[in-house]
Each structure stands twice: as structure tokens, then as C-alpha cells.
Amino acid sequence: MSGRAEQSNRSGQPKRSGEVPALALRGVTAGYERRAPVVRDVTLSIAEGEAVALLGPSGCGKSTLARVAALLHRPYAGTVTIGGETARGWRHRAPREQRTAVGVVFQQPRMSADPKLTLGALLTEPLRACGRGVEARRLGAELAREVGLDEELLGRRPHEVSDGQLQRACLARALVLRPRVLVCDEMTGMLDASTTAALVAVVERYRWRSGAALLAVGHDRGLLRRWCDRTLDFESAGGMTDSGSGGLRLRRAKDRPLKGAEHARTPRPPDTTTPAS
């Protein structure tokens, strides 16, 4: 238990010092209306190479939390630390290296793909945005193969491909800059079982190779339990039912040993089992 980096809220620093978490959120309060934040005072930390699932009913704020973690939504309070470095800004104000250290895959591929770009341009767009356009052709082809997109599909536009194919391209786009943390915001919510399995396998292969951390958001308990090392439950809507706690809070789900070897597992960093101090 003490080896876990996750904390319930308001309990301060990770218990295990000496290890830099890949992603740490401290005291995050965020939402769309200052008086009624959706997420209140959440603390969460994900170790290098760890996969954490965030479960909860819709509208409970888990996607908001994912957006905060990806530096896309400015919280009212709290800090986000990526690879030991605390974020100083949000959206465009965040330094490019910090923004690109977190890859994001959204729930709806239709909405998260620019309808004007071909799939090939779509998945290499981050390279061009970061001034690495020369590598676009090579890395694009490589990634397309990795996520299982045919060469022929790369010339098509989003409206000419299926949701599953588009989500593959969106996943490739999230991986093209080799992020240290991958945030999957209900990535498989709109997909069929076989595409879901394929995409999860792609994510796991990438994590196996790079040792990236994963924050997977969703409400498919079965999938996320099998996929991730740890699952965290958002309690059902706070404020009304749980006024004493002052709104929503994160609760530790039952710890769960991983069963089956269906997915390639990421090796835990060596010091996770032996506390450093």
C-alpha cells in the first residue's frame, strides 16, 4: 500500500519520496463556473510507467480532470506537475515541451479531427507544429503501420473513413511526439470491441517500449480494470449527496492484482516495490 503514489485528497506529498511521478495533480479544483466547480481538491499522482484508470458516472468531472492533466483546461486552484516540472501556464501559455509531454486521445474522433486535413496530414500535424516537418513522412508511415492504418487511407479525409479508423489516426497523432504521459479520455467509448482491443494493444505496445504513464478515463469498468494497474472511482455526484465532504473527491478503489497476460504489461520502475527511504 505504501508503495502507491496515489493519495486521497488533502494529504499532501506522495508518501514515497525520491521518485518523480510522471504526472501529479495536487489540490486541483476545476470546472466551468467558479462558484460550482466540477472537480474539487483532487490529488492524484501517476508513477513512471504506471497505468491509472479514472472511473465514474458521466458528468462527474473525470473528463475535466483529464483536460486539466493535459494542460488544456485551467483549474481554479491546484498544480499539475509533469515529469517533476510544475506547469506554469495552460493551453497556449504552457511551454511547448510541457504541452507535448502529454498526449491526448479524445472520445469522439469526428470532433477531434480537423475535417479539412487528410489522415496523413492529421497524424503528422504535431510534428509540423513543432518544426519537425522533415520527419513527417517517415514517422507518419511508421506510425500508420503501427496503429493499423492502410497506406491508402492516409490520403482520405475524416468524413471518408469510419470512426474506428479515425480514432486510430487520432491515437497515432497523440503518439507521434513520443509523450511521457498518455491521457485517453474515453478513447474507446464509441468503438466496437475488436477496434477497442486493437487500440488498447497499440497503447500498451507504446508504453512497453517507452515506459510512458497512462491516465485512462472511462466508465467501462471491465475494460479499465483489465487494462490499468490501478482504478480510481469518482464518488457519485457530490455536493448534494455528500455535502459533508465538500463535493467530489477521489476515492481509492480496491487494489487489484493484475490477472491474465492478454496485454503486454509495462515493467514497473525498479524502485516501486522497494520504498527509497
Binding site: R96, R99, K116, E125, P126, A129, C130, C170, A174, L177
Partner: peptide, 22 residues
């Protein structure tokens, strides 16, 4: 407010690039 703008920002695009490209 479309997610693909979020995706572009997360991919490191500058303000100008978001405006001109998307």
C-alpha cells in the same frame, strides 16, 4: 471550442498556427 483545437494545442501548435492552419 472543438476538441480538434485542443488536440492541436496539445500537439504543440502556436496561436498563429492554430489560427492559420485550423
Amino acid at each position: 471550442s472543438r476538441p480538434y483545437i485542443d488536440a492541436a494545442i496539445s500537439g504543440g501548435a502556436s496561436r498563429t498556427r492554430v489560427a492559420v492552419r485550423h
